[in-house]
């Protein structure tokens, strides 16, 4: 499989990465090189093989359903580019 220019733009939008017109053909070439490389997986017989979900055989750990953290709003907004009080500021989302 390979991707065309329209698909490159669609993927970029899905990935929320702006691409300039002059970047598209270069990106298309690189993505297609990667897709050509992974193409060899199609020759592997995976009939009846379970997909890996956990590389270490272990049961998912659970913890008590209790509050064990919090009251750190100052820490959480400490690195934000724009805040007001304990809120993150973003451009208007709802008209």
């Amino acid at each position: 499989m390979s991707v065309d220019a329209v698909t490159v733009r669609r993927i970029a939008h899905l990935a929320r990465i702006a691409v300039r017109d002059d970047e598209v053909s270069h990106l298309q070439g690189e993505l297609n090189a990667m897709l050509a490389f992974v193409e060899q997986l199609s020759e592997v017989n995976v009939e009846g093989v379970e997909p890996m979900t956990s590389v270490t055989p272990m049961e998912m750990k659970k913890r008590q359903d209790v509050v064990n953290d919090g009251e750190i709003a100052d820490d959480i907004v400490a690195n934000a580019p724009a805040t007001e009080g304990h809120f993150f500021l973003v451009p208007k989302v709802v008209e």
């Binding site: 939008h13 702006a18 690195n79 934000a80 580019p81 724009a82 973003v90 451009p91």
Partner: peptide, 18 residues
């Protein structure tokens, strides 16, 4: 670009992300 690190402005939030 909302919670930490670099932010480049955009007209909408999607454009800001991109």
């Amino acid at each position: 670009g909302v919670r930490y690190g670099l932010r480049e402005q955009g007209k909408s939030i999607i454009e800001q992300y991109e």
